[in-house]
Amino acid sequence: MPIPANILFNALKHHKGYIRQQIATATPTTLPGLLKKLGNSQMDIYYGYLTPERLFEEVLAQIPAETASAYLAWLNGEYKEIILSDNSKWILLEGNVPGQYIHLHPARYSPESMRVKAPILKTAIACIVCHPRIVHPDLVMVNQIRKTILQLSPVKDLAQCQHLWQVMKMLLV
C-alpha cells in the first residue's frame, strides 16, 4: 500500500484492510514489535470499502496538496473534515513529520468506522494471530495473551470482553 509521500497516515491504527494484511503475516513472535506502533490511546478504524489507494485519491482530489504552504493556508491553523464517496468522514490536520504535511485519520464516530482503545485493538489482533480459528477465545486464552505477549493486566471475566468481540468480528469479516 503506497502512501503518497506528503500524507501522514498510520494505517495500522486507521484502516481495517491494512490491519488484516498485518494479521496475515504476523506471528506470536513478531506481535510485540508490530503492536508497539499502536501506542496507548484511542483511535478510529475505518472498515469501509475504500482501499487505501482510493482513499488517498479521494482525499487529494478535495484538498490543495501540491505544496505544504498551499495545504497549510487552506487549513488556516485549524483542522478540516471532509466526506468521501462512501459517506465516511475524515480529519485533515497539519502533519508533524518533515515532508508529510497532510495528517489524515477517520473522524471520530464517522460512518464506516469504529472507535477502539489501543489495548482492545492489541488484544484483538493478538488473539486472531495466536488463535486464528477461534472467534471467542476463552478467559484463559485472553489473559495469557494479555499478560505474556502484550504486558497488559488480565480481565476479570468474559463480560468485560464485549468490545473485544466486536473488534475481532469487525477484523474477521
Rank of each mutant, 00 (worst) to 15 (best):
L72I: 02
Y109A: 13
Y109L: 13
Y71N: 01
K36V: 01
M114H: 12
Y71T: 00
T67I: 04
V155K: 13
N6H: 06
Q21W: 14
R54T: 10
H136W: 05
L150G: 01
L60M: 11
S153M: 10
S88Y: 02
G39H: 02
N76F: 10
P119D: 05
P2F: 13
N96F: 08
R133E: 15
L38E: 01
E78N: 06
K147R: 11
T148M: 10
K156W: 05
I125C: 03
K117N: 09
P111M: 06
S69D: 13
Q166D: 08
Y47G: 08
L92S: 00
I145A: 06
G95Y: 00
E112P: 00
V155G: 00
P119R: 09
I125T: 09
L150R: 05
L35H: 08
A70M: 09
L93Y: 12
L158Q: 11
G77L: 10
K80F: 03
W74Y: 13
L84M: 02
I45C: 01
K122E: 07
S113C: 08
L12I: 06
M170L: 09
Y49D: 13
K147H: 07
I23T: 04
V140W: 12
L31C: 02
L8Q: 06
E112V: 04
L152C: 01
T30P: 00
I125A: 01
G77H: 10
K117Q: 13
R108F: 14
I125S: 00
V140C: 02
K89D: 03
L172I: 15
Y79H: 10
V142F: 05
P32I: 08
A126Q: 07
H103N: 14
V155T: 13
M168A: 05
P28N: 13
D86H: 08
E53F: 07
D138W: 11
Y18E: 11
K36L: 14
A159K: 14
A126W: 03
I82G: 05
Y109T: 15
